[in-house]
Every structure is written in C-alpha cells, then in structure tokens.
Design a protein around this nucleic acid. Structure first.
Lengths: 218, 218
DNA sequence: ATTAATTTTTAGGTTTGTCTAAAAATTTGA
DNA sequence: TCAAATTTTTAGACAAACCTAAAAATTAAT
C-alpha cells in the first residue's frame, strides 16, 4: 500500500529527476516542492528507501527504483487523464484544473483509470501539452523547443508550456496563445530579447522573453 | 477543514440516523459501520462535538447539527453524482461503483461538483435509485415501498434497492430486475412468502422474500 | 588545508486516528 | 431492587507525517 503522501513524494521525485536530466534529487529540492521541511523529507526518504521505492544513500540525493518509477508514472497518468476530463468534458479552463487533478490523481482503481482513458478517446497529451504515459508507464515521444530559442522569420506550432501557474496560463489566454496555434516570429528585440509574433497568420502580439522561455513549440 | 475521516463519520451518522427514523445513533452502531472499535468512535465523537458537527451527550448517542448535516449531505451528493458518472459515462455496472465512489466523494471542489452535476444532466437519482441532494442539501422527495409489502395481482415499478452489496445487485442483474422495470405480483407463497413475479409483462421470475424486502417499488 | 557556510540527518515532540485493557455508566432481568 | 450483562468512556500506546533544534556531513572559500 502506498499512501497519498508517498505517492506525492514519488511523483515529485520523478519530475525533479526529469528536470535534472536524470541526476539525483536533493533533500532541499524535495522540501521546497513538498512544502515541508528538510527534516521531514529526510524521514520520508528513509521510509521510501525501506520500501524499495527509491535509491538513497545518505547525503547523496535520491533516484527512483523501477518500482518507484512505476508508481510515479501511474500517478502522473491519472493526473493528466483527469485534466483532460476536466477541460474536455466539464469545461474548466487549463488554469483551473491543477489543484483538482492533484486530488483525483490518488484515486485508486485500475479499472477506473482505463475506462476514463477510453472515455476520453485515449488522449496522448493533457491540456497543457504534457504527454500522458500509457497503462504500462510508457510516455509518448515528444521533442519540443522553447519558443525563446527559435530564430526570426521561422513559423512554429505551440505545443506546450513549461510553467503551469494560473497567472502564466491566464496571461497566455489573454493573448490568445493556445495549444495548436501557429506562431511566426516577426521580430526579436536586441535590447530585452522580447518577441513580436504573428498568431495564426492573423494578429500580431507582443511577448516578453520570460514568457517565450516557457512556451514550447515544434 | 474537515478530514476524510471526519467526513466519513458524518456521512455514516447521517445514514444511520435516517435508518433509525431520526433517533440518536449509538457508539457501537458507529463502530460497526466505520470498521473501528467503540473506543476509537468515542474519541472521534468528542472531537466532532467540539467542532459542533454533532450533538453529543456521553452515553446518549449522537445526532447531527445543522452544520454536520450540511457536510454529510455534500458528501452524499458527491458520492451519488460520481456513481451516475461511473455508470452512465464510463459503463461500470451498478455493483462495481461503491468503492470508487467512496474515494471520489471526498474530492474537495464546489466548482467540480456543480460542473459534474451539469455534465450529467442534473440527475435526481443515482444508479441504485437513491435520491441526490441538490447543492443546498435538499433531497428530492421519494416515497417507496418494499416489494415484500405489495399485495398479489398489483403492478408496480422498481425504483430502488435498500442493500448495495455487489452480491445482491448481481443477483438482481441475473434475474433482469433493473431500475424502472415493471413488476406484477402473480403469486406469494403461503409457506415462505416468496414471490413469483411477471417482469415487464414478459417473463416470469421467482424471488425470495429476502430479496423482495430489499427491492423498493412505487 | 582549514575554517566557514550550507546541506542533511538525528533527536525529541506534536497531531490524527487508531488500538487494547480497564473503569464507569447504563440497561436488563431475576 | 440490586446484581449481572452490556455499552460506553477513559487511560495509555502506537504509527504516520509533520515540526524545531541541534548535530553531523559535505561543499565552498580564503
């Protein structure tokens, strides 16, 4: 049995490991993302290691074992499927779903997950463009680039975001930047690397470099 | 903030109070239904009384306060709405949904509940025929009778069950007794009060009194 | 290469919700 | 009515997941 809390730790370790390019995740990093103190994290890491969910040597940070990774991927699968449900079926905005999916991701029923997946049409990506692992934990392949790294005059398609805060997503909404829209880069400021882009071949929009860094394109 | 556990106690107190015709619920009764020991229940009752969710005088059993009832009804509302979702949208059988709904009923988001309600077409009854309270906690009016109390030659409509165990529901499935079917009582055995009924004006089926007592009709 | 700063772990406590065993209150029944 | 049986509560413990404070290990810096 894995508790709600253990599942959260494993999910966060998975995500931070990805971000670190496969490197160990540190105690302090985990403390930040779990909203707890380093001492509490230390405690939990000992427990997760005992259960063989993580590889843990004191002071050396952690990585997931195969088993831990399986649990993490199952939680991420559920999170992202529920996000699709909330947006596609219930009409939530992509900026409103994170906290609800954080709860739904812990509902424990394989049959439910698979029926939900089917009901949603076996989606491969969630409303933020994040890939949804399949029942075996296999992630769809994705290679994306930050919009901030695209050269002038190029045309690309918006396929994801690397920040999920409501404020950021609402900012994109306000500028009509949505998943699937086409973006042609018209100008990049010498001074602050801000972008002037043409959206869907129709309207011209200004975008700070800070935003462009968190918009993923193909 | 009400915890998962507190919500469960309040829900169970609500249901047992109904069953008792509005009378106080005893500690032992609660211990049975919460799968814990009387000592643990005593403890929890003290806490729930402190929070003003229940009326509690030592040794006298408990009833819900207005506030406790509100929480109980919100949990029951969510439980029954999710059951509709599981059956109507995901294709679960009515015998498979209880445990999943027990988890989903604790998801905390008013917007989610209201959007789900709308998505489902504001159902008034769940897949077992139980009434779904509205957002304000108001229950649809229902007056049902046990099939076991109906006289011979009468024709009635099946509208609910008073037992939700998978075994009982599967037994009804096997005999094609579903919500909404018409039942004409053809014979009642003198010996064991078992029933011979005509289902939907087409097939004749045998039913023990034990089953008839738990089938609700109108 | 030590000292200083930082990170991580340990030690000792708290809260929630459970337990067992024993005490107290209530109910039953002879 | 008063002793026996039953129900309920109290007392004292425990596990999970957190905390603060202090100790230990690691990393950085002069």
């Amino acid at each position: 049995m894995t508790s709600f809390t253990e599942e959260n730790y494993l999910k966060i370790i998975y995500m931070l490991t990805e971000q670190n390019g496969g490197n160990e995740v540190s105690t302090n990093e985990l403390a930040e993302h779990t909203q707890t103190k380093a001492a509490s994290v230390s405690d939990m890491l000992r427990k997760l290691a005992e259960k063989n969910f993580i590889n843990y040597k004191k002071y050396q940070g952690v990585t997931l074992t195969k088993e831990g990774q399986g649990i993490a991927l199952s939680v991420i699968r559920k999170h992202r499927l529920w996000e699709v449900f909330l947006v596609e079926k219930l009409g939530f905005g992509w900026d409103e779903i994170h906290d609800i999916a954080e709860q739904l991701e812990h509902i424990d029923s394989k049959e439910l997950t698979e029926k939900l997946d089917k009901f949603l049409g076996n989606p491969k990506f969630d409303p933020h463009g994040d890939p949804i692992p399949d029942a075996k934990g296999k992630m769809p392949l994705v290679s994306t680039t930050k919009l901030s790294e695209i050269a002038i005059d190029q045309t690309v398609v918006m396929v994801g975001v690397s920040v999920h805060s409501p404020a950021f997503l609402q900012h994109l909404d306000k500028n009509q930047i949505t998943l699937g829209c086409t973006i042609k880069i018209q100008e990049i400021s010498e001074f602050d690397k801000s972008f002037t882009i043409l959206l869907n071949d129709t309207n011209t929009v200004f975008m700070s470099n800070e935003v462009a860094k968190n918009v993923l394109v193909q």
